[in-house]
């Protein structure tokens, strides 16, 4: 599935919900199902500290694609993290660099991405893009 198809799928899933409770129950469910991050990554090095909730993020570069692992101490944040993982995992660095994550506005989660919300999510997106940029640069240097 392309990044575009994944986003469209997510938007469609959210369109099925009548009210905020359905939407949040779904996010909470995703948060509960999220495998999270391997214990070895739950360190300061991988921590993105928010004032409210914390997020851990690690990234590996395999065969031209980036594999992310992420986690949070808050379940709603973790659910949204899981949603983002569906979009960004197994993508090329360029796909991630091009992504503006505006699809989150369409599913009523915009407020969680505000930098002032201090839940670590907006910093996580910045970090995801930074990883993509680093992997892309490394790849280009290798080829040069």
């Amino acid at each position: 599935m392309t990044i575009q198809e994944t986003k469209e799928n997510i938007i469609e899933e959210f369109e099925l919900f009548d009210d905020w409770m359905d939407r949040y129950n779904y996010i909470i469910e995703m948060g509960k199902e999220c495998e999270g991050i391997e214990e070895k990554y739950k360190t300061k090095q991988y921590l993105i500290s928010g004032c409210q909730s914390q997020v851990w993020l690690s990234a590996e570069y395999k065969e031209g694609k980036i594999i992310f692992q992420a986690d949070s101490d808050a379940i709603i944040t973790k659910g949204i993290v899981q949603l983002l993982m569906r979009v960004v995992n197994n993508r090329t660095p360029q796909e991630i660099i091009n992504e503006d994550f505006s699809f989150l506005d369409n599913i009523g989660l915009k407020e969680h991405l505000s930098p002032t919300r201090a839940n670590g999510l907006s910093s996580m997106i910045r970090q995801i893009k930074l990883y993509a940029l680093v992997f892309k640069t490394k790849e280009e240097q290798k080829q040069a």
Partner: peptide, 9 residues
């Protein structure tokens, strides 16, 4: 329950 989750709901 994390305070962020409670506050969001």
């Amino acid at each position: 329950i994390h305070h962020y989750d409670a506050g969001s709901l």
